[in-house]
Design a protein around this nucleic acid. Structure first.
Lengths: 150, 150
DNA sequence: GCTTATTGATTAGCATCCTAACTAATGGAG
DNA sequence: CTCCATTAGTTAGGATGCTAATCAATAAGC
């Protein structure tokens, strides 16, 4: 998360640019906007998930499993591959979601080390319940911040 | 941080949109791009700071103090105001930066509760050292991802 | 002037991320 | 077949964020 509330003005950046000749003022201004906007949206989404006893990461775990319905569930390592989080995070997240009844985790028959992780009916229902609000928050945020002030 | 590596295609979003009538497909696609790009840049910047014994947040603390040279340092609560992090985070961050010799923290004369936090000469030097690399990472990232594929 | 509310900062406890090290199962080389 | 490298998953320990509760100093009410 990028926590700076008031981004430097173009003027301030140009002053920096004078000191650091290689710097692309426009690119930096755009990047700081990207970071700040992304962080603000992230905060809103995290609050939404927290209010529903989830988190961004837990939600994304549900999503990536739901996204491949032809597969008979995913392995933990496959989830980690699709999600740019470390394996231990997948272990903990899956454990929490299974405890909440949203995922099932059964040993894989073809590989004694692996586990097949699937959505339960309840997991699918929770996902379907959350998506409209998720899209609504995103839509409202973009409408609010996509203008000239952004 | 937004961890989903492969964003949903427009086609997948449109299928979702069919199920959830209120959804603005274009806005959602743009928002997911915003989140993912922001997270990728954040990762690069965090790696840069980690390699220099700092973190994004510690760096921003240095920045906000440096940004107001006319003030005789900032109070911890003023740092928290400018930085959208909780007070305890400021307490810990300032403590760590002071231990590293980058900040000074002296009791405020006009208010027995408060502390005036200033950059040391070393803190200013570290900041000046880090900025060129920071801007370079941002510039490279934007050049790489700002194109049509982004 | 004394009591109470507010404010600056910290502490305590929790959540979630990471890397490094570990266990257990698989699979390939000889 | 046996040994060893690889792979799946977990555990352990550390960093960093949060909220709620606490302590101390200031400010405000009567």
């Amino acid at each position: 998360m990028f926590f700076l509330k008031d981004l430097p003005t173009r003027q301030m950046l140009q002053r920096y640019g004078a000191c650091y000749p290689g710097m692309n003022t426009e690119a930096v201004a755009a990047a700081l906007n990207l970071l700040r906007r992304g962080s603000l949206l992230m905060r809103e989404l995290e609050a939404y998930f927290t209010a529903h006893a989830l988190s961004q990461t837990r939600f994304l775990v549900l999503i990536v499993i739901d996204r491949e319905p032809d597969r008979e569930g995913l392995l933990a390592s496959e989830i980690a591959d699709r999600l740019d989080v470390s394996r231990p995070v997948v272990t903990d997240t899956v454990k929490a979601l299974a405890a909440a009844g949203l995922l099932d985790s059964v040993p894989a028959v073809e590989d004694g080390r692996a586990k097949r992780i699937t959505l339960t009916a309840r997991g699918q229902a929770v996902l379907a319940d959350l998506l409209p609000g998720y899209f609504a928050i995103i839509g409202a945020f973009m409408a609010r911040t996509d203008g000239p002030g952004a």
